[in-house]
Amino acid sequence: MALEIDDVNVSFGSVRAVAGVTLKLEAGERLGLVGPNGSGKSTLVNAISGIVKGGGRIALDGSEVRAGSALSAARCGISRTYQSPQTFADVSCLDNVMLGLDRDRTNGLFAAWFLRRATDRRERRRVSEALALLDQVGLADAAESPASMLTFGQQQMLGLARALAAKPSVLLLDEPVAGLNTEESKAMAKVLAAVNEQGVSLLLIEHRMDFVASLCPRVAVLAAGSLIADGPHEQVFADPQVIDAYLGSVSHA
């Protein structure tokens, strides 16, 4: 029961953005993924979520994710947030979250015209679940406003609620608190801890080391597309190689 990343590599032309990364994320685990800019963190997360196509093997609980297929990743139970929130600007927050909720035959053409009663019933349940998720991220009051009206921090929260709507077993977070103020970051940490409490594994990319340390007992470090360290955060942050490649400037600051 885990996310297995086996020898994953991604190349853009002649640039190897991710060069054979092997990682395993146990169910319910919280893993921080850090590294300097351009080290391949986002690309790795993009490969796991099927946004970019890479080589190697990615599997969740034994079921393999088809390389480069975001749909396949979603169906396997991998959900994600984005560094720029990627919310659907023109629709309401409620609809944004409802887009992530269970999809089945009541999302088709037939349902729109003929299965009115069944569709209405399911929509009602979706509304109720989406409102609960919005409440969980503190956006209950904004349910009917379009996502474009939200602040950046709120959009990041909305992105999280939308990702959670899919009831993922693994949640990938690409710099969820970049650009958020202290208040918002605290709220984000609290929600993420609660989500993890419910059994969702977290894979967190973040540059703010205090945030990573507070949330993730285990940390992996990427540099130039390769994993250079993986272990408990106290140990990793003390690793001379990591300090040299990434943390150097931070510890001198």
């Binding site: 975001a70 990743a73 659907f88 887009l99 992530g100 939308r162």
Partner: peptide
């Protein structure tokens, strides 16, 4: 891309 990531 985001829509596909939601399983659409």
């Amino acid at each position: 891309a985001a829509a596909a990531g939601l399983g659409i």
